[in-house]
Write a protein that binds this DNA or RNA. Sequence first.
DNA 1: GCTATAAGTTGCATGGCAAAACTAATCCCA
DNA 2: TGGGATTAGTTTTGCCATGCAACTTATAGC
Lengths: 407, 407
Amino acid sequence: MANLRQASLRHANLALVARTVLAAEAPPSRADVAAATSLTRSTVSRLVDELVTGGVLAEVDSAIGGPGQPGQPGRPSRPGRPGRPATPLTASTGRFAALGLQVGVGQLAARLVGLTGEVLAEQLVPLDLAGSRPGPSLRRLRTLTTRVLASTPPGMTVVGAGLALPGIVDHTEGRLLSAPNLGWEDVTPGAALRGALGDLTLCVGNEADLAAHAFAHPAPGRSSEPQDFVYLSGEVGIGGAVVVDGTVMTGRHGWAGEIGHVCVDPEGPTCRCGSTGCLEQYAGRLAMLAAAGLDASTPPAELARRAHAGDDKARTAVRSAARALGIALAGVVNVLDIPTVVLGGHLAQVGALLAPDVEAMLVRRVLSAHWVTSRVVTAPDDPAPGATGAALLALDRVVADPVAFVS
Amino acid sequence: MANLRQASLRHANLALVARTVLAAEAPPSRADVAAATSLTRSTVSRLVDELVTGGVLAEVDSAIGGPGQPGQPGRPSRPGRPGRPATPLTASTGRFAALGLQVGVGQLAARLVGLTGEVLAEQLVPLDLAGSRPGPSLRRLRTLTTRVLASTPPGMTVVGAGLALPGIVDHTEGRLLSAPNLGWEDVTPGAALRGALGDLTLCVGNEADLAAHAFAHPAPGRSSEPQDFVYLSGEVGIGGAVVVDGTVMTGRHGWAGEIGHVCVDPEGPTCRCGSTGCLEQYAGRLAMLAAAGLDASTPPAELARRAHAGDDKARTAVRSAARALGIALAGVVNVLDIPTVVLGGHLAQVGALLAPDVEAMLVRRVLSAHWVTSRVVTAPDDPAPGATGAALLALDRVVADPVAFVS
DNA sequence: GCTATAAGTTGCATGGCAAAACTAATCCCA
DNA sequence: TGGGATTAGTTTTGCCATGCAACTTATAGC
């Protein structure tokens, strides 16, 4: 932590007020914020005014897009109560947005996300990039980026850009070190996208980490339940992320979350990573489809349909995957005491079939299962949650330090 | 984070100054602190004076034990340089201490630890508590506690007490839920110790967590390398802790770190936890001794001696343990990206034998091994590191919020 | 003994927050 | 229909911690 001068006190309180408003379920009044933060109403008023003129917050029902024109006072939020009606506050739409990009094995995506977490513009292209060359793919992504940025509403500032990649990333250098599923090695996407990004700096991150962030935070400053979970993201292999108290654990170098390569059985099949019996060899998309006797291009939903219908091979494939997931996740839960597992990617599509078996396995293998039972939930269906997460992460900076953007 | 009033600004800066002084390798001057914190010299002077009169900091070479008597100014720390010589600052000895207790399978321990991390008084009783009854054991510990507290130097304040327990702990209630190695279930040690503790509140914690804290922080506010590691603590079974950025990850309920029950082989032997193939079944003390054909009471050092001497069974036992450790730790490293493993307890005594095999296993099974290689190090030999950790944790509160103690 | 240099202290100005008084807008009731 | 009760938001005043700059103290080097 840095030192605290008086200015940073104001910065911190400004951020606190912004966070409080954005985190609230219903639009809170200044008085609500004062009560929640234990600042005084006078202080909150001053800070809120600053954030409103800066375009971070907005008074509900005030004229949208007309900064400086406060408009009519807001509607009473709790009618039937005496007293002056409150002026509800929300995140301001129309002033700040961020760009989220994703290179997946099955698609390219570019999204513009606003402060309320809504997608303002999107370009999504299904595309098989397994074994592709980085150059052409990134040029394609650059086109999408340009198109999305072109649709930025006037007066809106794009505060940052993030790119989700399915592999091991050096986030300090913005470099993709290795993405086995794409067949990419040592790529620096920032250079290829520079033309489209203008002066935006690109933050590169792991797809699972960013998708997990989006799952924990539907909008900047807002938190959804649960705040502690293990996220599994299945595309071809299995990526993962560990979220503690709403924050994605990146680890010493940013490479945490490689749950796909946790050993399930030391005598198991050899993995492309060089180890044996990795989770990915049982619950990866290709592994599951192969075990079910299906072609590699079959959508996972078809596997789920067959298993439901009673297809023996499909059911065996799902059971085997669930067993492997149970063993690997039990280890993670034992080590981290995080009793919620979120299944994303292809695992979400067979989530309903996997969850009971996985939960049973966790009950058996988790030491603290006597006191707390683990839950397995599925992530919402989204082809590119990493793009959203990347944008949200960029927008978080506005909430964390409004002064830098309100200027 | 709570809100920030002006007073908390002073609190925060007071804590910052205290931390900066305690964290420094060599005693820093006020000017050094100002440079390190980017506060001004005048502000640092004011804060330091307050901490000195409060007994948190001391000027080196001032009369010890004579508060209010600043004594002669300190020696020049960098002779040969022009200018007024600096007054070096350190943690004050003699004013604050904390009590650390530990119930181990092999001993009871009570320690009084000062702000510089030194053990001021100690009572250590080797004792086989496996299968013991809690009541008599805790009464014994109470006697040790009374004795240690009786040796508190005059004028010194004991700011807190902590108790390390080898099991699953509910730290909010101060209750030991289950300690299989002791055979204890649902014990509240605070009640049994109340008489000896006076008005001290007892913080109960897991032994491995507290030992890991002591390893990361040799003294309150001070950090040692590494700051990110996995700690393994072997007594009868295997406990563990995950330390990220100097902080022990406790998990959602405080039960993180149960690495002993990570699955190494789903077809392996049944563990007393009900699962199969847990790490503890290969690298626990009893498991290793049994595999080596030795009696359960044999000290682990004897196992190490035999393996060194070429005893086949001993070598096989060590190799098998190393393999299991490698598999389990590779999973942890993959998930957490923490490339350092610290072996404590009985594992430290055979650490030199284990380390090469474990490291080799990690190279093979960790996905990011191409870029960073994991290290395996051994913890210093201490029968009760948890007691020290518990005391240090209590002392940390003095550094984190000096105002509460300086009053 | 004089100058240069660096450490530590003192007095004043600044700026952010708290407290309390004040204004604004609504409900309720007579 | 108007006045009291109640709650939201604003203005004024005072406090307090920090920054700044000038000053004092203590040493080295000449």
